[in-house]
Design a protein around this nucleic acid. Structure first.
Lengths: 331, 331
DNA sequence: GTTAAATACGTTACCGGTAAATCAGACGCA
DNA sequence: TGCGTCTGATTTACCGGTAACGTATTTAAC
């Protein structure tokens, strides 16, 4: 990692500016010079120093930061994948961080990342601290907020409405004859997006004249166990429930496992609905009724919006990526 | 994002070097100066420029690169999480990339990332291109190879032996009376670590005098569907198999779903074994026999090894993180 | 054959921090 | 009083690129 432009320049008998030009775009030098420079660069094992380039010119910035609530969520893995594929192709590097559903942690992370002068940021959710918003506005960094839709984004947004997901599922349960619904969630109140689904669901039942019979908001991470025990807790308290909407598919599958272990027939005795559309949901003996979220598309769309903005192309400020309620055999 | 050290310096009536010192460590200035500088920095909304810092001094480098085979793998999500938690605490930023199980793609990614002069790299697997190895050796960047163990790492390694996982599971199946084993894998030959498990499994059966009856290596991604259809394909070809080892738990669960749909009793008619230890495996009506991999620990250990090396502390070159075969009710 | 424009370069200055060396004044002490 | 030491600062040089501009030389145009 010793070789610098100047070393190549000296060896090639040209100036370092010429080397710089050859190694980047391509104009202002002869073919002969080009070949010589490239040959020597290769020979010397030249590794460009983007730190210097980005620092010196403000142009060559190719870092993009992305903050997700949890790295362990299967859904976000797909979003990340979508972003990475779209950005990687264009030579961007992806810096990631996890907020643990805390907007304060998100702000702390953003402050760190902004000091690297990223070309853009992708954030999850539409709730941010005042400090975050002020920082991003004043720094005028392109920002895409994904996952939860907002009509007044900091800059751009790609997502869907979590509240609508809850409402839609409530209507589906109602249409299928369920009247005594419950909700089992996790991460308590810290996951505002899960909370939005819950509220959309709850309010729709209220409007239909059938307020929720019960709701169980656990502190745990929203996994299979939480779904299993969450349903157990609710049913031990309240035997009246005839359908349960879960925080996500993992939890719903945990709930299904509980029903199976207790010999509860689904959906006759109790209906089960999830959210997220994980692959496992569709391969169960009884396909899970759930809302499929186009994770990869969201990541891709977010990355593309960011890149378009960077190129100065016109960009749609808010992109709605529709979710799809997929009826299974559990409701 | 206008304020620079010099702006603060001017406003505080000191030199920018004094401001730099105040804002970092803390020595060589009076309490009075410190308070004034900090106050003005805050007031001006100063955002440090790490690009300049890292470029100018080589010391302030806080980027760490991490390359995983697939971002969509649940297991790697946990590894990433372990790394991120350990590094984030210490002020490091994590740059991620996905190799899609291709060492050439890995090399391309590394070349990009190295130009940002990262403090260290975390790579997955022990196979790398000659170019990668040469580049990393000559640049003398701290590197941790995770996931698959190697006794001669580029620099450091944290992991376990995939071949041993396969061997151990083979012994378990043999001990439980299975003699006609098959293997259903995915990603064909490109996932060398899955391949290693397969070979460890296969060879152990051969050594026991019971060569595998069949093996099905799909091209697909190793998910539920692939497991379902992989097993279907194998059984339609070969009805003789009495136990199947799968590429991972997702596929094994897919295989279980297939058995259920065909009324095959598990483990009486056919034994099913997975690998990875995903949470779902332990909540199935029949707990899946699988190998639990300490994903988060591996991430944490890798990050800690890297940081120790950066601090100049003595580091264990190879850290073995043991996996655990957890017998379920499917074998 | 003179001038204009294009080509192929070289020079200079600068990006915003940090390391290292230097310096002024206060203090302790012989 | 004079000298070394400590504290709290300043000064200078530099990291490795790139933008902007300057300068020969060649080619095209009239």
């Amino acid at each position: 990692m010793k070789a610098r432009l100047e070393d190549i320049a000296r060896a090639a008998g040209v100036s370092k500016m010429t080397v710089s030009r050859v190694l980047r775009d391509g104009s202002g030098f002869s073919d002969q010079t080009r070949q010589k420079v490239i040959e020597i660069a290769e020979q010397l094992g030249y590794v460009p120093n983007r730190l210097a380039a980005a620092f010196g010119s403000d142009q060559a910035e190719t870092l993009v930061g992305m903050c997700v609530p949890r790295l362990t969520s299967g859904l976000f893995g797909h979003v990340l994948d979508g972003v990475d594929r779209a950005l990687g192709r264009l030579g961007f590097q992806l810096i990631i961080g996890a907020s643990d559903h805390s907007i304060d942690a998100e702000e702390a992370w953003i402050r760190q990342v902004v000091s690297w002068r990223p070309a853009g940021l992708i954030l999850s959710g539409r709730h941010h601290t005042a400090g975050t918003i002020e920082l991003l506005r004043s720094a005028s960094i392109p920002v895409v907020e994904i996952w939860d839709l907002t009509t007044s984004p900091i800059d751009m947004a790609v997502g869907f409405s979590h509240a609508d997901c809850g409402t839609e599922m409530a209507r589906h349960l109602l249409a299928r004859g369920h009247r005594k619904a419950g909700y089992v969630g996790a991460l308590a109140r810290s996951d505002v997006m899960g909370q939005a689904r819950f509220e959309g669901f709850r309010d729709a039942f209220v409007r239909a004249g059938h307020p929720l019979v019960d709701a169980e908001l656990l502190q745990d991470t929203p996994g299979f166990y939480a779904g299993y025990y969450g349903l157990e807790t609710m049913l031990s308290r309240n035997n009246d429930v005839d359908a349960v909407y879960f925080h996500n598919d993992e939890m719903a599958i945990g709930g299904l496992a509980f029903c199976q272990s207790r010999g509860l027939s689904v959906p006759e005795e109790i209906g089960i609905a999830g959210w997220g559309g994980m692959e496992a949901a569709s391969i169960l003996q009884k396909r899970l009724t759930t809302t499929v979220v186009p994770t990869t598309s969201i990541g891709k769309a977010a990355a593309e919006a960011l890149v378009a903005k960077l190129k100065g192309e016109p960009v749609q400020t808010v992109t709605i990526v529709p979710t799809r309620l997929v009826p299974g055999e559990t409701v």
